[in-house]
Amino acid sequence: MAALYIHIPFCKTRCNYCDFYKSTSCAKTEDYIEALEREMEYRRGYFGDTPVDTVFFGGGTPSLLPPALLQRLIDKARSLWNLEEVSEITVEANPDDITEHYLDELARTDINRLSFGVQSFIDRDLKLLGRRHNAQQAVEAIRAAQAKGFGNISLDLIFGIPGMSLREWENNVLRAVILGVQHISAYCLTISDNTVFGDMAEAGTLIPASDEICEEQFMICHRILTDSGFCHYEISNYARGEEFRSLHNWAYWCGKTYLGLGPSAHSYDGDQRIYSVNNLEKYIDLAGTDRIYGREILSRIDKYNEYIMTALRTDYGIRRDALSERFGFKGLLYFEYCAGKFLRNGLIVREGNVYRIPPEKLMVSNSIISDLFYIEE
């Protein structure tokens, strides 16, 4: 199976923490849709005979587009690739874009999964983050979508927000559970360069939450969600049962083929990573040609390191047989040699044939994983 990602770069405003590529003007929406269609035609042979299992509209803010335009892109995709077995079509949405009319139109499309960028149910946090909605709008948008029959809804939350107490974070997670959504993604706030938060942190006007607070908030989230019946299947992701895992993101973590369309979008075919220019004007002018792409050819060592990184992010973990099948007995021996010290101090656990990072150590997983990489001397 394969995955299709379609980037919608438009936003009404830029959030204070966001470092994704986007445009705060929607003036070129039609030009952009036409450019996407040209790129789709240009890459029509990308999947070969492989069926596409998932489609994901990300951004940016896809919910700024009329549902009819999203369906137009889905129809275009169906005309070029095999979407007969597609099981999940997701659109990211901002709560303040959701109206009864918008949901009525959305229900007429093939979209069957909504992902709401809630981030917090505390208005103070939302204002600090630069979000356009308030907490009440988030609750009303989710309930309205449920009332319209959408039965696969995800919401995003952010922990590590400066000034958020442990009790406030606990209430955030509990409120998400009470809303009855099927999937919750909980991300630690990252303060990046070239963002409002990055500038504030450099100036000393924003004090990031400590690592200890972030770890404690992560474990609060993990406890509440697992006690509420959610399965923790990836560092930041929880699903209310196997059937509600994000199949699209799972394709990334499992190294499946995926195609990304639009400026700054990435694709992967098992051997190379292809990335598009992160400039809307250049993309519109040159879409449908090879001039918008850069490429990175992955070596065997690159593939090994990426497998280690993605597998240890998930509950699937690293299986000895899968590792040996992909990288030979030598690859297995190398991993087990490097993993030895982490097994001794409990940062990695082995359960039969499987190696995993225990939940209480996931917040330091990056340092663990990087020490397991194969370094060519």
Rank of each mutant, 00 (worst) to 15 (best):
G163E: 15
I178H: 15
D75Q: 00
G117C: 04
I153W: 01
S185Q: 03
T61G: 01
I142K: 03
I191P: 02
Y187Q: 04
N278E: 14
V354Q: 13
Y233F: 14
Y32A: 12
S267L: 03
C11S: 10
S25A: 15
S63W: 11
E376T: 09
N305E: 04
D371C: 05
F121T: 07
I184R: 05
I368T: 05
F373M: 08
L36D: 08
P358N: 03
S267P: 07
R108L: 11
C214R: 13
Q217I: 00
I224V: 09
A138E: 06
R72K: 07
Y355T: 00
C11M: 02
Y252T: 00
E170Q: 12
G59S: 09
E215K: 15
S63P: 12
L312R: 09
A239D: 02
Y307A: 06
N249L: 06
L114A: 07
R78Q: 00
I368L: 11
T109E: 01
L280Y: 07
E351H: 06
R223K: 13
M363Q: 14
T195A: 02
G130R: 05
T205M: 04
D290N: 11
L174Q: 13
S87P: 01
D110P: 01
K361Q: 11
F244K: 08
E325R: 14
Q71K: 01
L83P: 11
A287R: 05
H101V: 14
I122H: 12
Q119A: 09
A2L: 00
R356Y: 04
E243Y: 03
N237G: 08
A138C: 09
D125R: 06
C231S: 15
L298V: 09
V173K: 13
L128I: 10
C214D: 14
I235C: 04
I308Q: 07
G59C: 09
A147P: 03
Q146W: 05
Y252V: 02
S79C: 00
I122C: 08
C11Y: 10
N152S: 07
C338E: 13
N171G: 10
T257F: 03
C18M: 04
G288H: 11
R14C: 03
L114F: 07
L372M: 05
M40S: 04
I153Q: 05
D19T: 15
L69Y: 02
F150Q: 07
R223Y: 04
E306T: 05
N134D: 15
G328P: 03
G229A: 01
I98S: 10
H248F: 02
D104H: 12
A186W: 01
L332S: 09
K341E: 15
G198W: 02
Q182M: 06
S185E: 02
I284G: 00
D19K: 08
E30I: 11
Y283S: 04
F329D: 14
D123E: 08
I142Q: 09
Y102P: 01
R223S: 03
A135V: 10
G270Q: 07
L70R: 02
